[in-house]
Design a protein around this nucleic acid. Sequence first.
DNA 1: ATGACAAGCTTCGCTTGA
Length: 257
Amino acid sequence: MPITLASWNVNSIRARMPQIESWLASRPVDILALQETKVPDPLFPAEYFRERGFVPVYRGQAAYNGVAILSREPVSSVAAELGPAFTDCRFLSAATAFGFHLVNLYAPNGDTLESDKFNYKCTWYGALLARIQELLRIHPHLALVGDFNLAPADRDVYDPDAFRESVLTDRRIRNFLQELEALGFVDTFRHLYPDAIAYSWWDYRKGAARRGEGLRIDLILLSRALLPKLRHAGIAGDIRSFPRPSDHAPIWAELDP
DNA sequence: ATGACAAGCTTCGCTTGA
């Protein structure tokens, strides 16, 4: 049986419990990384997931950010600190029982190119890159998943001209992905489907999902050592037509055990 | 030039998201 690794920016785990339940029923997963849980740790619905056979690890805060890993098997070496300068909950790494180390990330959006938030996004990505370099030396079988707030190429954007000066497509941000690729990481979906047009996020406004106007900003990257195990990858875009959806779809990859 | 949806907190209005 292949191992299913999935990632989903749920935009509030408490608001999204019905959708999480129905998606997990339609596609059983072995390990699921969540972003934007928007819940402090004491209020995380840990018991709900334990009752359904998951080991939950999570690091959240009120209102914003928040990351979690739900695993069918115990995890170890859990780390949530990216550095003293980063107090927001956007990073969670763990050793899994599925033959790889996992990093779950929720990259800052960056607001506008001129904003302090964009400077923070660049600083954050710099720290992430340093951490990944360290981790990769120790754990060559490394999966890097989450909401990157980064569209790798113009074909990942429904209207590239409209996003030409965007914090999601800016050269400095795309360079961080290229640095990861230089370390040997591969964008699994793009690797399997070089020409596919598929998105993982749609604006809630303007009927963007219905019109097919989205972005592919959620990614599952596998290290060079782990890539030979990749069998399938996909984006569960149909989740967007369900009631009260997240603005992001779950993404998944199947790996050989 | 602007808002449009959605969620949570600052809760009947504001901030943030992407």
